[in-house]
Design a binder for these strands. Structure first.
Lengths: 290, 290
DNA sequence: CTGAAAGCGCTTACAG
DNA sequence: CTGAAAGCGCTTACAG
């Protein structure tokens, strides 16, 4: 008959929109794309549509996005918080009584539900593998100053090295933008330094790829043991195939979706923190042979 | 005062939601991620929020997504049609008087506004460059049977080869899933064949990367001249750096967003087809030296 | 058990 | 020019 249910009218009456807000820092990032895919699929399964906003990792843009979400009366919110998001934002969510889940990045106040990877463990897994290869010095390459995932991973690396009896000075680090360009710049800086580390743990696969570009340009592709992070699709195709810490963005997004749906159902439920264990995927960039 | 405008209530009165539907085939695809980023930015600028749905390139899922979009009374729709979408779908849009823009893929009936890359030109640019390198035989690697972008690109390749006086038999092709795995399988098949072509044009950079994995595994990385497609971020970092056809997903998405906003403003406007000229980005996989 | 009415929060045409 | 009222399309509590 051509009749189409008007969900907006129903919303006015029931105060539920069947729409969930998803606020991300950078859609074009392949890893976040995977997270978003898992999230969307799970929300759809529960009957929610996804209202998307990309903040470009900018807090002001994020503020505007959240305002839109409120005006649209979303039933819940999944948020990858932009760098520099004040923890006070979470108090506002509580005030608005907006069910929400933090994804992939948490805020230090820690009073929100959160689904992310266990970064301390990820750093540890990478470091332990390099130590098995006999590395005595390790460099942590890239990531933005102050982000928690970097801090946590470095913590895991440091713990593993300390347990192996290495001094704190055996772990060096440098800050670079999380991108191929960042990795390229970081790789050049590393090559320009007075001595090379035995192994490098990169903050992302894109950084690892940039590092390799610098190594190839210097004709020194096999001079370092390298481990990437995220295990994006291209990692397995890379030459050498990248050993990487897999964080399984899709299932992480799906878990966040499930948790959010649960919280929308029971807004008084308790805060849940899920840290998914990452996995070391061994290929050849670490020096292993296939 | 804690007051928040209820856009849903206004919608009921004004019949405008300030929400635009964006239906994509695969969010996790980095190229579509870029398109989506440009689209979202442009829609936001015009005051629209983005209601996202991922169809996984499945027509039934797409049907459900479109139903949701209608129930939510989106003001307009940007659609990357799923493979196998019937052209009759566009008639339905007209019936619903839903302003819409096709993005990246078109439907053969051609009665919709469309923003995409000029694939015939893209194929031609790649082929002409290989011909300048002296290639006499070219293989078009990958892409799904029957998709228009593949057909158009092959058309461009064929035209350039014909103009160079080569016989039709000089152009061969094979069908593979658009992914690294597809490229890997395609590369192995190519190596198993009786003779190698002089040059290979890949349907995507991911296919080119898979092809290189097959070549590396066979110890034959420099045996072919290779051109990729899309110019994703990793292309410049690849070894050898990938020569690729850049389609600039972000600006394509932005153009689609602008066109859609325009059509929402004037629903009786005429059908507009924008084919953005792709660009050949020369690096080293084609045999050029930097 | 059925059906008419009220009301969600806006906008807009209309009366004063 | 200002302000009260109607109405968008649903859902739900209530009267019959």
């Amino acid at each position: 008959m051509g009749y189409v249910y008007n969900r907006g009218a129903a919303t006015l009456r029931t105060q539920r929109t069947s729409v969930v807000g998803v606020v991300v820092t950078h859609i074009a990032n392949p890893y976040f794309g995977e997270v978003l895919g898992g999230l969307d699929a799970e929300l759809k399964r529960a009957g929610f549509a996804t209202l998307l906003a990309d903040t470009g990792d900018d807090v002001d843009e994020q503020r505007r996005a959240l305002q839109t979400m409120r005006e649209q009366r979303v039933d819940g919110l999944a948020l990858i918080p932009a760098t520099g998001t004040p923890a006070a934002l979470l108090d506002e969510f509580a005030e608005w009584s907006l069910p929400h889940v933090l994804v992939s990045r948490y805020l230090d106040d820690g009073n929100s539900s959160y689904v992310g990877a266990d970064d301390v463990l990820g750093g540890r897994l990478a470091a332990e593998h390099l130590l098995e290869h006999g590395c005595r010095t390790i460099h942590y390459l890239g990531g933005i100053e102050g982000i928690l995932s970097r801090r946590d991973r470095i913590r895991g690396v440091g713990a593993a090295m300390a347990e192996a009896g290495l001094p704190a000075s055996a772990l060096t680090r440098s800050v670079w933008e999380v991108s191929g360009q960042g990795g390229l710049a970081g790789g050049r800086a590393l090559l320009d330094g007075e001595s090379l580390p035995d192994g490098v743990i990169c903050h992302s696969d894109s950084i690892a790829m940039g590092l390799y570009r610098a190594l190839y340009d210097a004709g020194a592709a096999d001079v370092l043991r390298v481990i990437g992070y995220d295990d994006v699709a291209a990692a397995a195709l890379w030459e050498p195939p990248l050993t990487s810490i897999a964080t399984h963005g899709g299932s992480l997004g799906a878990a966040a979706g499930r948790l959010l749906v649960e919280r929308i159902g029971q807004p008084r439920g308790q805060v849940v923190v899920q840290r998914a264990a990452p996995e070391l995927v061994v290929r050849r960039s670490c020096g292993c042979h296939s």
